[in-house]
Amino acid sequence: MSENGGRRSQAQRDAITVEIGYALFSGAFAAAVVFGAFAGPALLFELPGGLETLLLRTGLVVAPVLFVARVVSVLLRFRQSPQPSQPGRTSPDS
């Protein structure tokens, strides 16, 4: 975890909280957009029964899958990226 006995600093906890919030918000937004793209025409227009059902069910399946995929990808990327020692500054090697 960290050098001070395995406990995270307040800044680390804040960064994790912000990243979780970003992951949830961006996942929900992406899922809503995809659901709207699939199910929107079925909700707005008179379509044949089979096509309307297909579009709604596709939206109901794809949206949660996209939500989970987005949340997992954001959190894994956060976990794997090294945090800069001095935010806003580059290292002398770069």
Rank of each mutant, 00 (worst) to 15 (best):
R57W: 12
N4E: 13
E52Q: 11
S2G: 14
I20G: 00
A69E: 10
E46M: 01
G40Y: 03
P64A: 08
Q83Y: 05
L76N: 14
E19I: 02
V65S: 12
A28P: 03
P87E: 11
T17L: 07
G50L: 01
A30S: 06
L60G: 13
V33R: 02
A39E: 04
P41F: 01
R7D: 07
R79Q: 15
P87D: 08
P92I: 12
P48S: 04
F38E: 00
T90M: 13
A63D: 05
T53H: 05
V68I: 14
M1K: 07
V34H: 01
I16H: 09
T17N: 06
Q10D: 14
G6V: 07
V68T: 15
P48H: 02
A31T: 02
R8M: 15
E52W: 02
R13Y: 06
A42I: 00
L76T: 14
E19S: 13
Q83D: 12
P92E: 15
S91R: 08
G21Q: 11
S26M: 13
P92Y: 14
T17M: 05
A32Q: 04
A63Y: 04
A63F: 03
R8P: 00
G50W: 01
V72M: 09
L66H: 09
G40C: 03
I16C: 07
L60W: 06
F67E: 04
L55H: 02
G59V: 05
T58L: 12
S73I: 12
S2A: 15
S85I: 12
S94K: 09
V34A: 13
A15G: 10
R77S: 14
S85A: 14
S73F: 14
F67M: 11
T58W: 02
L56N: 09
F29M: 09
E19R: 08
A63H: 03
L47E: 02
D14A: 12
A23S: 10
A42P: 00
F38H: 02
F29L: 12
A37V: 03
F38M: 06
A31D: 03
P84W: 09
S91F: 07
F67Q: 04
F45K: 08
L43A: 10
F38A: 07
S2W: 07
I20N: 05
L60V: 05
R7I: 07
A69Y: 12
F29S: 04
G27Y: 14
V18C: 07
S73G: 06
L51V: 10
P84M: 10
P87V: 11
R8Y: 14
E46P: 00
Y22Q: 07
G49F: 06
F45C: 04
G5N: 09
F25H: 06
P48R: 01
A63S: 12
G21R: 13
G27K: 11
R57T: 10
A42Q: 01
Q80A: 15
L24I: 13
G27N: 11
V65N: 06
L51N: 00
V65W: 09
L24R: 07
E46L: 03
R77K: 15
